[in-house]
Amino acid sequence: MPVFYGTTVDSPLMLGTAQYPSPAILAAAFRASGAGVATVSLRREAGGGQDFLRLMQGLGVRLLPNTAGCHTVREAVTTAHMARELLGTDWIKLEVIGHTDLLAPDVFALVDAARELSAQGFKVFPYCTEDLSVCGRLLDAGCEVLMPWGAPIGSGLGLNNPHGLTALRAAFPDVPLVVDAGIGLPSHAARAMEMGFDAVLLNTAVARAGDPVAMARAMALAVDAGRAARAADPIESRDMAVPSTPVIGKAFLA
């Protein structure tokens, strides 16, 4: 199971809490998923925050607050401080968005914010790209987890750059790596786990499915299958056929 900053979580599936049809379906989806970590945001209190917090605390999952929607270092750092006080956790999913249409990270501001927050005692989970240099800078900044995107948030495209993600896994074999964002199907989640990622973080694929609870269960099965496959040392793929049935002993019938 993944270990983040010395804490072992119960499942390689991390699940977001947005966009479910109802709080009851959210809760049922979490139970079906077996997810060990739930992401939450901070938003202006308009009456719903207290009930939501009670709901989440009843699910028995570890909460990972995010800085979603922040575009500057200052916004992200202030949000992280508010989250730490509110939820009593020094974990923070750090998002600093640089491009509105793609919700792509501003990797320069991300590194600056990660450095500042790490120095202030936060355990930073940076939403980043799979760029090796950027990831190296985030580790230098104090991050002990990396969360590269699979594809743009909410797109459901899966793993846009599997070769880049594979290279990242190979470059940082001892760093917990999470594919965050873009997963649309259980096969995407399974593939990330087969590639050796420690966990996947997804939200829309479950919350917006026709049956979120059933999809949560499917995702749980997928990450388990992918993790088991990785541990079983998969074969290398090749371009040409290799007969699986022995050639020796075939009857001469021509």
Binding site: G16, Q19, R43, R44, F52, L63, P65, L86
Partner: peptide
């Protein structure tokens, strides 16, 4: 003054 609470998020 900004007053925030935990809410749904991804």
């Amino acid at each position: 003054l900004e007053i925030v609470a935990p809410m749904q998020g991804g």
